[in-house]
């Protein structure tokens, strides 16, 4: 920043409020996505409680228990809003990406030189964020276009016979690292929970961040394994939907 660069705007200038709005939107969309990913993991991991449990959760989102019949379009609507949220978040977060070769080199050298935890985590956040662009979109489009195919067999068939498991495996790590680091950074950026002793808070937040990443990755791996096992068993009948033990009509 040399003295030749932009001087103050002067008394009559009005700076745009947009940088403020965008920072808020980036953080709010990150927060919403981060919290949603926690809920999402609990929903999909219902398979660990059994096929009936997962079937029930899937029907719940289709409004089955409110309207007496499933409306998969409700799922599409919900997925569309998540996709929109993701796009808004990606668009605002893109402002922070390095934008040219010099900036990439600067960031890379700086991070290697400094050996500083939170700086290295940011590089990881940029990298996982970039991967999420593609991986999250593939998953979301599938859910958007086939909302009726969410269920113990339909999902397991997609994972195994539809060969989605490699993507889901990578997506799991990317999301759980990116989300946890993002939520940690949010707390630091906005000074949440700072209290009278911010250094202790930061240490605690860092531990919480690692614990949540590890917890959700383990839960995710167990869940993915469960779908893969069902998918392998069900492969000869791939495409057939699950019928819960107590019901003969639905699916």
């Amino acid at each position: 920043m040399g003295s030749t660069q932009r001087m103050s705007n002067g008394p009559n200038a009005t700076a745009s409020p947009w940088p403020g709005y965008l920072d808020l939107v980036q953080s709010a969309s990150g927060l919403a996505l981060g919290l949603f990913m926690w809920l999402h993991m609990f929903f999909v991991s219902s398979i660990l409680l059994g096929k009936d449990a997962m079937w029930t959760v899937a029907r719940l989102f289709e409004g089955y228990f409110f309207f007496g019949r499933p409306y998969p379009a409700l799922v599409s609507l919900f997925v569309a809003s998540i996709l929109l949220l993701l796009m808004v978040h990606a668009a605002t977060a893109l402002r922070k990406f390095p934008a040219n070769t010099r900036q990439y080199l600067d960031l890379w050298r700086h991070t290697r030189q400094l050996r500083h935890g939170d700086t290295s985590l940011w590089l990881l956040q940029v990298a996982t964020g970039f991967l999420l662009f593609f991986m999250a979109s593939v998953h979301l489009y599938l859910m958007l276009s086939h909302p009726e195919q969410i269920g113990p067999f339909a999902s397991a068939d997609r994972v195994w016979s539809g060969r989605m498991w490699p993507l889901y495996l990578l997506l799991l790590f990317a999301v759980e690292i990116h989300g946890a680091v993002g939520l940690y950074r949010l707390a630091l950026k906005w000074g949440w929970f700072a209290g009278p002793d911010p250094a202790t808070t930061r240490r605690r937040l860092r531990r919480a961040k690692w614990l949540t990443s590890v917890f959700f990755i383990l839960l995710g791996l167990a869940t993915l394994a469960a779908y893969m096992r069902i998918g392998i068993e069900h492969a000869p009948h791939a495409g057939q939907h699950y019928v819960p033990a107590w019901s003969g009509e639905i699916e």
Binding site: P19, K96, L114, D118, R185, L188, K189
Partner: peptide, 8 residues
């Protein structure tokens, strides 16, 4: 708003 909270 340019600060990313890296805390270096």
């Amino acid at each position: 708003f340019g600060c990313m909270g890296l805390l270096g």
